[in-house]
Design a protein around this nucleic acid. Sequence first.
DNA 1: CCTACCGATCGGTAGG
DNA 2: CCTACCGATCGGTAGG
Lengths: 229, 229
Amino acid sequence: MRGFAKVAPMPASSLRATDEAPAKRPRGRPRKTVAERDDGNRRGELLRCAAKLFRRKGFDATSTRDIAAAVGMRSGSPFYHFKSKGALLFSVMQEGMQSAIARQQQALEAAQCNAPNIASRLRILIRNHFEILLGSGSDFIPVMLYEFRSIRAQQRRQLERLKDEYQQPWIPVLEALHASGQLKADVKLARLLIFGALNWSARWYDPRKAAGLDDLTEAAIDLFLGERI
Amino acid sequence: MRGFAKVAPMPASSLRATDEAPAKRPRGRPRKTVAERDDGNRRGELLRCAAKLFRRKGFDATSTRDIAAAVGMRSGSPFYHFKSKGALLFSVMQEGMQSAIARQQQALEAAQCNAPNIASRLRILIRNHFEILLGSGSDFIPVMLYEFRSIRAQQRRQLERLKDEYQQPWIPVLEALHASGQLKADVKLARLLIFGALNWSARWYDPRKAAGLDDLTEAAIDLFLGERI
DNA sequence: CCTACCGATCGGTAGG
DNA sequence: CCTACCGATCGGTAGG
């Protein structure tokens, strides 16, 4: 629980500035302890807390006041960092996707050295996907998956492009498995069904219960490729 | 576009009734044409329109005024049929699930006569599931799937029970497929992954495009059972 | 089922 | 980043 100092309200001198210059930088206020300052991370804290709340309660059911309170701000302050609630949601999704793409890239590069066969290449993609989706502290992708209705068409198109970029490495893998007979289903439909199976896990997976991400990965591989691996 | 007659506002005589009896039945008002009366279906129209809006815009983003307008009512009137917006959502989900259970029962009974093998039993369940989920005019189940956060814990438990009832017939089928080696994955995880693959289709399926529900069913069977069918 | 209305809440902003 | 505030909207209700 992060408290913040209560400050006696100052009498507001209601002089109206006549110049229309936009507000520049915040001026000095009584600082918190040095450990709490790290101003550069306030934006990141907002993103993380917003993602958590958006995931648990939904975008519309989360007020900007909820988010502000979660990071110890007053109600108007999130708008110093994001120009609207929708922009905050979009940033959550966009940065979530960019991070997911980067992590997948790394996972693939690390695996390249092991020169794996094509089926274990799928295993790596699936295992990494579960990690991104269900790993600790990752609410960004679930928000991206479950709040798509709350963003405007133009931003949705940007996110679609990131999603395509993310799915790109999966396509040759699935095609190779199809060509070798390990995956019989139509490749395009198989991809849609597979991502459904994986993504839905964000709805039911409980990290406190038995199955770990490795178990999940094995079950998925067994389901999609049977014993032909 | 269903218009409704504009009525000149009557001067409100502001006598306050002192008895606290709840409002009984609606008393006479100038009727619409006979064809439009069918009072018994107003509740059903509300459910259908609400489901459509909840699916497209989300529960929180849909106002009770939106719903009222969609069926040609004034803003307060939905509360004559449902005691709250949440009760309307719950009814959509509950009646959607009850209908789904009934339709699945029928599909299984119809198939019983054909004495199918176990794999085609799974095919029947999957095909019926796609029909319920993606068939024309069925927004109830997608709403049930995507608005679970918007209902209270107690009602959620009721819906969980209906969901269990729906999934009940799938379990012996999957277990038999597992026993016969046609399904290698752990049965419980396989069930979760399979429902994910199927349910996610409500997100991407477009009836105007190429693939029909039969194609989808084939792809799903191929993916889950490979060529071992 | 309509009219007229209420209290609460919300996203956002001006000014400092 | 806080204070103080605004306009809009929303779920819901009393009374008929």
